[in-house]
Design a protein around this nucleic acid. Structure first.
Lengths: 145, 145
DNA sequence: TTCAATTTAATTGTGTTCAATCAAATTATA
DNA sequence: TATAATTTGATTGAACACAATTAAATTGAA
């Protein structure tokens, strides 16, 4: 028995997680390029399509991203006219990000993206659901620690 | 029924995959910093600890990474003295990466990393195994397309 | 009220990640 | 054998990702 068994790539849970994540996101590229946005911009917009206005802090907690990542992402979306950024009147520390009409309009063009991706992710729906459940369980568990 | 149901963040499989991947890798940071390496360097070493010598192409296919990512990673490992890089004598296009004695020695200090991480990933072993299986099934399916 | 602690974003620096392109070497074909 | 196609890494440029630090505003305790 190999004393280094635990150090083999095939025995890691983190690795297929990391690799599958990148491979799936790579599949979005052609569709998102068509919309002129990146994956990170896409998931930020996804939150804004549901919320219209949200603070950077809240957005970051939703996406598990910090301001070092979000600031340039939101500035880029602002330059493209999809969001507006303004300080909260109640608390000047808080930056509110709000979707614009152009941003809302982009939703129409983005609506076909998920189904195109679903074609690549060829797990049957039961397995996809179980994978989804386990990933959220893992995420929740990590939030505790 | 919302016509944009498919565009909600909570209905995506990609998102928990992406978020969980980053959260898990973040957990490695304190331990890997202690060894003076990054996560990408760590998984590259993991392959080299099993193989001693391997081409960049083969390493990339193992890690699902291309030369744009691997070249700087391997140069950094070379600077630290953990690997050596040399062209193959049979085919000058092929770059062979080989683990050094210092690289082998680092394995001793890395052996405790996986168990420390296992403490954070608080899925029971049955669930962890199922997650592992589903992730590899997804990865394999993506390789086809 | 005052000022120390906290909260919130922005900034900086390092290190990926990947698409696109390039250059060199090899292989295959006419 | 020439040379066209392919293979293999390296390079470049854009966009993250995150740790660490900074700056500004707010909150809370003495």
């Amino acid at each position: 028995m190999d004393q280094y068994e635990a150090l083999k790539l095939d025995n890691q849970l983190c690795f297929p997680l990391y690799a599958a994540s990148r491979e799936v996101i790579k599949r979005y590229h052609p569709y998102l390029t068509g919309l002129g946005i990146t994956y990170t911009q896409y998931i930020a917009l996804m939150v804004l399509w549901e919320n219209k206005a949200i603070s950077v802090k809240e957005l970051g907690s939703r996406l598990y991203l910090d301001s070092g990542t979000l600031t340039p992402v939101l500035k880029s979306l602002e330059e493209k006219g999809y969001v507006e950024r303004r300080r909260s009147a109640e608390d000047e520390r808080v930056l509110i990000v709000e979707i614009t009409e152009e941003g809302e309009a982009l939703k129409e063009r983005a609506v076909s993206v998920p189904e195109k991706i679903a074609g690549c992710v060829s797990l049957d729906s039961e397995e996809a659901l179980e994978l989804y459940r386990l990933l959220y369980k893992l995420l929740e568990a990590l939030k505790e620690h």
